[in-house]
């Protein structure tokens, strides 16, 4: 049953992609100006030309590293602070306003402030950290609040030691929440990385390349870089989902 639903889902995705391409082509024919809306085929030619340049892998790698660094920092701090908020009521109450403030701060403000504080290459790391940290943190807290005290009591009656209670009850209870947080945080963090790169202009960066293309009115390349960013986002989402399925197999 499961495979058949994913198969039909795949068809829908394929059809909608074809529709999107067709629509894009038609509108580009109507506008008839590559500088405003490049045609799909020109964008793909530009995409190909980008990929074969010498610097491409370096640009991609550096942007990915920034995203990954920001993510890892928010991952570890998010789990730590989320755990503290979830287990200690007072800490949770004191900490919540901080999270709300961070979450409500416009991403551009974060980037502009970071531009003042950090070197160009670190601005995207900071930005992605700050947008994804509250998400992971709040999800971990939520996961802890969702732990069934009845199960903890059961483990106590059966004399299960604290380490095992943590490993076999706390951890699996939090895991689905943590994974959901990771997936959202990775998506948002990646977008923040690119936005920050556009403004901070590190030497090798996807955002920098996008901005340079825009300055030269090379709209095809802006589109091509955007497609690359989307593909990366899509791939990372897929990896996380795969990972999720392999560890949360008791669900569904």
């Amino acid at each position: 049953m499961r495979t058949s639903t994913t198969r039909s889902e795949k068809y829908y995705i394929l059809i909608s992609l074809i529709l999107l391409l067709a629509l894009w082509k038609i509108i580009s024919l109507i506008i008839d100006a590559d500088i405003i809306l490049p045609s799909p085929e020109n964008t793909f030619i530009s995409f190909y030309n980008l990929v074969i340049t010498r610097d491409f892998s370096r640009i991609l790698l550096f942007s990915l590293i920034r995203g990954f660094l920001g993510f890892m920092i928010s991952f570890f701090l998010g789990i730590t602070f989320g755990f503290l908020s979830g287990t200690n009521k007072y800490f949770g109450k004191l900490f919540e306003p901080f999270l709300i403030i961070i979450r409500s701060t416009p991403i551009m403000s974060i980037i502009l402030i970071a531009l003042i504080w950090f070197r160009a290459t670190n601005v995207p790391v900071f930005a992605s950290f700050l947008v994804s940290f509250p998400i992971i943190c709040m999800n971990v807290t939520e996961g802890i609040k969702n732990i069934d005290v009845n199960l903890i009591q059961m483990a106590q009656v059966y004399n299960i030691n604290k380490i095992r209670v943590f490993k076999e009850i706390y951890f699996p209870s939090i895991l689905p929440f943590l994974l959901a947080g990771i997936s959202t945080a990775a998506g948002i963090g990646w977008k923040a990385v690119i936005a920050a790169e556009v403004l901070s202009q590190p030497e090798y960066a996807l955002g920098t390349s996008m901005q340079v293309s825009r300055i030269y009115l090379d709209t095809e390349s802006v589109f091509a870089w955007t497609i690359i960013a989307i593909l990366i986002s899509f791939l990372s989402e897929r990896v996380i989902r795969k990972f999720e399925k392999s560890i949360v197999k008791w669900k569904g």
Binding site: D148, N150, N161, R164
Partner: peptide, 24 residues
Amino acid sequence: YIFQEPRLLAWKTVYGNISFVLKN
């Protein structure tokens, strides 16, 4: 203890839930 509700761990199988209390 047999509780009013089964109080099983959702992430463990039938086997895993029973062996859970025997491990140490």
